[in-house]
Simulated assay, not measured.
Amino acid sequence: MEPVRVPDSRLASMQADMAKLMDLAAQHERQLDDLSAAPPTPDSPFAAYGLPGFAGLPPAPAPPEPRPILELEDEEYEDELDALSDWVDDFLMRVYGAEVTTAAPWCEQWQEHADVVAWLHALWLAYQQHKEAEAGLSGLFVWHRDFLTHAMATVRAAGGPLSACMTDPDRPAHRLLPGPRPSNRTTSAIEEPDEPGERGDHGESGELGQASG
């Protein structure tokens, strides 16, 4: 049986294809070695599933630390207030709102009461923390006992920040109660200072008066 002769042009093409396949196989082998050698890092998005991370890639950025809402400004504040409003309207008041009365007032424009916003935002942050698995099975009980009860009693107190607002669900009302005036120390600090040399002139005139006397 005579051997099969392959044309030189086709033989060169087959050799080039074989070289490409060998290079591709070598690349795959190196990738498999990297994946098997790299342990899962805490910041790897695959660590929770027991899968290794990708070597050479930067760790996933940590989520931003929560900040009190009154420390936020402009668009950042508006975005946080929108998210808080969704939680308050769709969950908090729907479940724990109870009836609006003179003993438990409410305001449909509560977002304009800075102290109420601060209270409810802190309550929301505590809820997010205590509903996580790390808080344990009693996490939400602790939230009810230590956070929800106290916050709602303060926000909806008869003499609280919403006492001048809605006390009847059929009669919506909204009024911001004026806060106390600044202390004397604050008001005196913003007053215009004495003219330069005024105290010195007074002192010198006093000394001259004593000398002449």
Rank of each mutant, 00 (worst) to 15 (best):
W87T: 12
G97I: 00
N184G: 14
N184V: 14
W87K: 08
H150G: 01
A164G: 08
A98D: 12
R185Q: 14
D146Q: 10
W110C: 04
D82Q: 15
A157H: 14
W106Q: 07
A126R: 12
T167N: 03
P169K: 01
Q128S: 09
L92C: 06
L125A: 04
V117P: 03
A157Y: 09
E76T: 14
E78Q: 15
S85R: 13
E191R: 15
A158Q: 13
L92N: 05
A164W: 04
W124Y: 13
E78M: 10
P193D: 07
V117Q: 00
V117K: 04
P182T: 13
Y77M: 11
E75I: 15
H113I: 03
A103C: 07
L148S: 01
F141I: 02
E108K: 11
S85V: 03
P193V: 03
I69R: 10
E132Q: 14
Y96A: 13
E99G: 03
V88T: 04
A83Y: 12
L92G: 02
A83W: 10
Y77D: 04
P61Q: 06
H113W: 02
P105F: 00
F147T: 03
G197I: 02
E78D: 15
S138A: 14
L125K: 02
L125F: 06
G159P: 02
P172A: 02
P180E: 02
E71V: 00
W124G: 07
H121D: 06
L81C: 02
G160S: 04
E192Y: 05
E108Q: 09
T187N: 05
T149C: 11
H174M: 07
A153K: 13
A189Q: 07
P169R: 07
A98I: 04
A98H: 11
W87S: 09
T149I: 09
M93G: 09
